[in-house]
């Protein structure tokens, strides 16, 4: 019965969607709206928050292959394998007339053995910490929107004015009990950013600089704010990509992180455990780096492989590992 009720809830929206598609197709409007006229690779890839950009940084480019003449979209799946964590990100985005981008992504972070010491203890004591020993998972929904404001990343090679876009994310982290244990202030929050992107063809190089206004801990996977700071702050991010040929780019990225939970221990249902009582229970957060190679075999597919160097994440140091992202555009 529960399943049926669930289906019923979605029926009206499904019907609306069908009616919308029917209207689009019957009018032949879709043929006019659909566009894949951007040059190969210039739509970028999907970053872990779901927006068009690099691997971890949103760019000023609008996702997909639509030019100002139409709309285009993409879906992506990203997997990051770190010593103590695995991130699975799946989502979709649409680019409207190369002006507006709307995105959604669902991040699922499994935490391996990270919280086992805490989990076993609190499980025995029956404390609600959001930690299931051996199986603690963090799920987060990320809604994104971006508007291109001015500038041409590609065509205006005769000036230095970058393409500039402003955007934002609204993130809902669903493991509220764990965030409380980690002493994060909030489980839902928004972030805003301004991104500037320019391709310098004479040196085959793309440069992107983004300033993100955020209070996120580990992009929101461990919540927002904490004992060391609750206010949003401006954090810079940089992507450099070198174009090897029309379908291959290599590059590096940097993302500044905050210190809202820096040096903090865990809060077990109101009792903050001294950091060294149960071994190392002190949290740290490092800036993120990655080095990537992105392949664009066609306008319908991109494959990005990266080595991510994320440093300290919550209780665990040296979190470096491989990243792979597949993006299908249509």
């Amino acid at each position: 019965m529960k399943g049926l009720i669930g289906v019923n809830r979605y029926l009206p929206s499904c019907a609306a969607l069908l009616a919308l598609s029917a209207a689009l197709f019957s009018a032949g409007a879709w043929a006019d709206l659909y566009n894949d006229g951007k040059v190969l690779a210039t739509g970028g890839v999907s970053m872990t928050d779901g927006a068009g950009g690099g691997g971890i940084t949103p760019w000023a480019t609008i996702t997909g292959y639509g030019t100002r003449d139409g709309i285009n979209g993409d879906v992506h799946y990203t997997y990051v394998n770190l010593p103590n964590y695995a991130l699975n990100s799946i989502g979709g985005a649409v680019g409207l007339w190369d002006r507006v981008e709307l995105s959604y992504t669902n991040d699922v972070l499994t935490t391996g053995s990270t919280f086992n010491t805490v989990g076993l203890l609190t499980d025995t004591l029956g404390l609600p910490t959001g930690i299931a020993p051996w199986n603690t998972t963090i799920k987060m929904d990320v809604f994104g929107a971006k508007v291109r404001v001015f500038g041409e990343a590609i065509y205006d090679s005769d000036n230095l004015i970058p393409q500039v876009a402003v955007g934002g994310f609204y993130k809902i982290n669903h493991n509220r009990a764990l965030l409380k244990t980690l002493q994060a202030s909030k489980s839902k929050d928004w972030e805003a950013y301004i991104a500037a992107t320019k391709i310098f063809f004479p040196i085959n190089t793309l440069v992107n600089v983004t300033l993100r206004y955020t209070a996120a801990n580990e992009t929101g996977l461990t919540g927002f704010g904490g004992p060391k700071g609750n206010k949003r702050e401006i954090r810079p991010e940089v992507s450099l990509a070198y174009l090897l040929n029309k379908g291959t780019a290599i590059g590096v990225e940097y993302q500044k992180h905050g210190g809202n939970l820096e040096g903090q221990s865990v809060d077990l249902n109101g009792v903050v455990v001294p950091g060294d009582l149960l071994g190392s229970l002190t949290q740290h957060e490092s800036d993120w780096y990655d080095a990537f190679i992105a392949f664009f075999p066609s306008k319908n597919l991109s494959i990005t492989m990266a080595y991510a160097m994320l440093g300290n994440i919550t209780l665990t140091p040296n979190q470096s590992g491989y990243y792979i992202s597949l993006q299908a555009s249509f």
């Binding site: 001015f150 205006d156 005769d158 000036n159 805003a192 206004y213 949003r232």
Partner: peptide, 27 residues
Amino acid sequence: KSLKVITQIAASAMLLFAAAQPALAAQ
């Protein structure tokens, strides 16, 4: 405060845009 920051970002963007205008003449 966040509204103020966003306004400032928007204002700088508009300024940059204004500065860019002469360069956008037909090529």
